[in-house]
Write a protein that binds this DNA or RNA. Structure first.
Length: 491
DNA sequence: GACAGAATAT
DNA sequence: GATATTCTGT
């Protein structure tokens, strides 16, 4: 679209500057000779100065004092220009409007220019598509460098030109700084320039800022996962619960992916060597309840302030150093995995629905009408607590069972598994909790040792609140020799 | 260059 | 939403 010349090496097309062949590579002494520059400014003095300076830099300069005039010139002879420099404030049309129109009508880099370097003005320039913002009075050194925008426009990259390590545009800029530093007004100007430059850097590297998952943020995440339960924890819901401004569903999804891998590693499902070093991330840091982000792009100097003291990160913890949240999640995960295993096994338990069992084999313990079984009267009965609590043996059984968590969860779950509508798992589990909470896991115990262990075992209600498996287990135990009784294959 | 971890693509 | 792949910083 623009000009016919190709610049060797980079293959960049330029307008009237096509005479500039073979000089584009950084540091190879490209000169802006012949580039067509249109300067728009209502201040004739400024215009004259700019004209002279640009000519001195060997640009091919055209000047005009009105924005409308500039538009007319460009519309007529677009191919003659490679770059536009426009003042921000002009009587007939403000520079931003001109910038917008040029952006709409033609692919030309536009540099905004003003004595005002306030944030909102610069930002306005950026949002309207300016490729740079020059502060008046403009210096020779800056003008010498503006050709770079032409290349950048073609290549779509600022980094091609800008020295990544130093952040300087080129050697001229360094030289410039060295004799500006003594003067305080120059210092202010330098600060302004740096600010402007920074804005454009941010603009150009619009890559998404990376979320730093600080320990605090991670804990919020873990809490959300625990609130939802590991099986129900999906990115969207987690995000809602976390309620951290700026955090996206994708951020959470990505973190969740890592977290799941991490948990699997911990639970031994997918054994991998654990890191030797311990977690120290963000200790002494102060990211609380808010998101900490790292600017995107290639800027290398921006991650200052409190930062992780180690690269091990959140998932670098070893098993012995887990926080409560993670331990909870881990327990949830393991319970969930067991439930899944149990579910797949229970599919093989055909005809073992509790109602069916209780109906086809009416329980008649001591007398036909007796519904309550007093376990104190049946000293020989033994139940496997682990079996009652868990459909399959636990990988890492808890050392104690508390009614508030394990029992209640377990029995609500079982009731749900058995798809029984009239159940009252809360009451049942509360009863169990009162009786069993002192017992260690995996223990076999005698019912007569359990205080307050009067259960209405024979009642439909009781049976209906147990999973097929537990129900069968109870039946097998209480009535070991009953004719026609099905046997739990897992006993 | 390996690795962790976040972003992005599928 | 889950998983695979790519990118980036250390």
């Amino acid at each position: 679209m623009m000009g016919s010349g190709k610049l060797s090496g980079l293959g960049l097309g330029l307008g009237l500057a096509e005479q500039q062949k073979g000089k584009m590579v950084k540091g190879e002494g490209f000169s802006p000779e012949g580039l067509g520059v249109l300067v728009v400014d209502d201040d004739p003095v400024c215009l004259l100065i700019l004209d002279r300076m640009l000519r001195q830099c060997k640009y091919n300069v055209t000047t005009c004092s009105r924005a409308t005039e500039a538009l007319a010139i460009l519309r007529e002879k677009r191919e003659n220009y490679d770059l536009v420099i426009s003042d921000v404030y002009m009587p007939d049309m403000d520079g931003f409007k001109l910038l917008e129109l040029i952006g709409l009508e033609m692919d030309l880099p536009v540099i905004m220019m003003s004595a005002v370097g306030e944030t909102d003005v610069v930002m306005k320039g950026i949002t309207h598509g300016a490729c740079d913002y020059l502060l008046k009075p403009v210096r020779m050194e800056e003008l010498r460098n503006i050709w770079q925008h032409v290349i950048r426009r073609r290549s779509g990259s600022r980094d091609l030109i800008k020295d990544e390590a130093s952040g300087e545009w080129d050697d001229n800029e360094k030289a410039l700084e060295s004799h500006c530093d003594t003067d305080s007004s120059s210092k202010k100007r330098k600060e302004k320039l740096e600010f402007v430059d920074e804005q454009f850097d941010n603009m150009n590297s619009m890559k998404k800022a990376r979320v730093i998952w600080s320990f605090e943020l991670h804990q919020q995440f873990v809490n959300a996962v625990n609130v939802l339960g590991i099986d129900k924890a999906v990115p969207k819901r987690i995000l809602e619960i976390m309620n951290v401004q700026g955090l996206t569903r994708e951020n959470v999804a990505s973190h969740l992916q890592k977290y799941r891998l991490y948990l699997k590693r911990l639970s031994g499902v997918n054994p991998q060597p654990l890191p030797v070093a311990s977690f120290q991330a963000s200790e002494g840091g102060h990211f609380k309840g808010s998101m900490h982000v790292q600017p995107g792009g290639r800027s290398s100097s921006t991650s200052t302030g409190t930062k992780s003291t180690t690269n091990l990160g959140i998932f670098g913890r070893s098993l012995g150093q887990l926080d409560d949240g993670t331990l909870t999640t881990l327990a949830q995960l393991q319970a969930f995995e067991q439930r899944q295993i149990a579910a797949s096994r229970s599919q093989r338990l055909e005809g073992y629905e509790p109602m069916h069992v209780s109906q086809s084999h009416p329980i008649q313990p001591a007398s036909a009408n007796m519904e309550m079984v007093d376990f104190q009267q049946l000293p020989g009965l033994e139940f496997d607590l682990d079996l009652l609590m868990n459909p399959t043996p636990t990988i890492q059984p808890p050392t104690t069972i508390s009614p508030a968590t394990n029992l209640e969860d377990d029995f609500s779950l079982r009731a749900a598994d058995a798809t029984l509508g009239s159940s009252n798992p809360t009451r049942i589990s509360a009863d169990f909790g009162a009786s069993f909470s002192f017992l260690p896991a995996n223990s076999r115990f005698n019912m007569s040792d359990v205080p307050d262990s009067n259960f209405s075992v024979g009642s439909e209600e009781f049976l209906s609140n147990l999973s097929p498996r537990v129900c069968g287990s109870m039946l097998n135990t209480v009535f070991p020799n009953q004719e026609g009784k099905q046997t739990d294959p897992f006993l």
